[in-house]
């Protein structure tokens, strides 16, 4: 495992928030450049904090998490995790590095052919040679942390959406990772389970000393727990700062997003020729 000594950046004792993940002006496009997602995107994710990444739907927030997890490769720029350029790693080293991060998928992505208990035990059984008795203790502790110890014998199909996400969270923290990435953790949740998840993210971050990245478009929930916020629009970062700083911002884009106005600098319409032109047949479809 890479240790702090391998981190190339010069350690400055004054800076407490040494970034765990650094995204350095990446360009990314899906499908051989057909659909540009990011252009010159840069971010720094401080260690031990909750960083929220917000932006309107469809701007590729999930893509960002996949880039950090090295499931996707940017065309330009680089991403470092704890000082290691993740896209320069070989397959084996990459899989080794991924043990130090984990991701909570929007759907939960629990293994449907295993019980909740086995799902949480899965990363432990795969990556450690711990005896079953110790795995049992760890699994019960992790399930207790998300309040699902009583549901450990259920199958994923028997869980509600909110419970599935909590079970997936227990699995995500099973190996005590340094970084947890939450992909839309609040989407499609009722107010109560939303409150539960907000509380869990905050508590886990403090008690386990995690670094969290929360990708979401639910402004009000995330503003209460985030230490730092990035707002993405138009393929790049349009604003960042602490929640308090952003509330004060005069940038119309940030203002539109935080207040939820329908139209503004982020247009309501997907880019298209004008409606009148298209209806009158002046232009071929597409």
């Amino acid at each position: 495992m890479p240790t702090a000594s391998q981190v190339p950046s010069q350690p400055s004792p004054a800076q407490v928030d040494e970034p765990l993940v650094v995204i350095d002006s990446i360009d990314f496009a899906h499908g051989f450049g057909a659909h540009q997602v990011y252009r010159g995107l840069s971010m720094q994710i401080p260690k031990g904090k909750i960083t929220a990444v917000m932006g309107p739907s469809g701007i590729g927030k999930t893509t960002l998490l996949r880039l950090i997890g090295a499931q996707l490769r940017p065309q330009q720029g680089k991403i470092t995790f704890a000082g290691v350029d993740i896209h320069a790693l070989g397959r084996t080293e990459l899989y080794e590095l991924r043990k130090r991060m984990s991701m909570l998928f929007q759907s939960g992505a629990l293994f449907t052919d295993m019980s909740v208990y086995d799902n949480v035990a899965f990363p432990l059984r795969e990556h450690s040679d711990l005896p079953e008795s110790i795995i049992d203790i760890i699994v019960k502790l992790k399930l207790e942390a998300v309040g699902l110890r009583g549901a450990r014998h259920l199958m994923p199909a028997e869980l509600s959406g909110g419970m599935a996400r909590r079970a997936a969270l227990a699995r995500a923290i099973a190996l005590d990772p340094e970084l947890v990435m939450y992909d839309e953790p609040f989407a499609g949740q009722d107010p109560i389970s939303m409150g539960v998840i907000v509380k869990l993210i905050k508590e886990l971050n403090q008690s386990l000393g995690l670094t969290s990245i929360v990708v979401t478009h639910d402004v009000t929930e995330v503003m209460t727990i985030a230490d730092y916020v990035y707002i993405i629009a138009n393929k790049t970062v349009v604003g960042h700062g602490t929640p308090a700083e952003l509330e004060q911002s005069s940038n119309p884009l940030i203002h539109q997003f935080l207040n939820g106005n329908a139209d503004g600098p982020v247009p309501f319409h997907f880019a298209a020729p004008s409606l009148a032109d298209e209806l009158l047949g002046k232009q071929n479809a597409r």
């Binding site: 996949r66 997890g69 499931q71 397959r91 899989y95 080794e96 590095l97 991924r98 043990k99 991060m101 984990s102 991701m103 998928f105 929007q106 759907s107 992505a109 629990l110 293994f111 449907t112 899965f122 990363p123 795969e126 990556h127 190996l175």
Partner: peptide, 18 residues
């Protein structure tokens, strides 16, 4: 489709092997 393969990859388990 249910992101179980991605999830394996992110856990550091190679879905091709597993």
């Amino acid at each position: 489709a249910t992101e179980q393969l991605s999830s394996l990859e992110m856990m550091g388990v190679d879905p091709l092997r597993r």
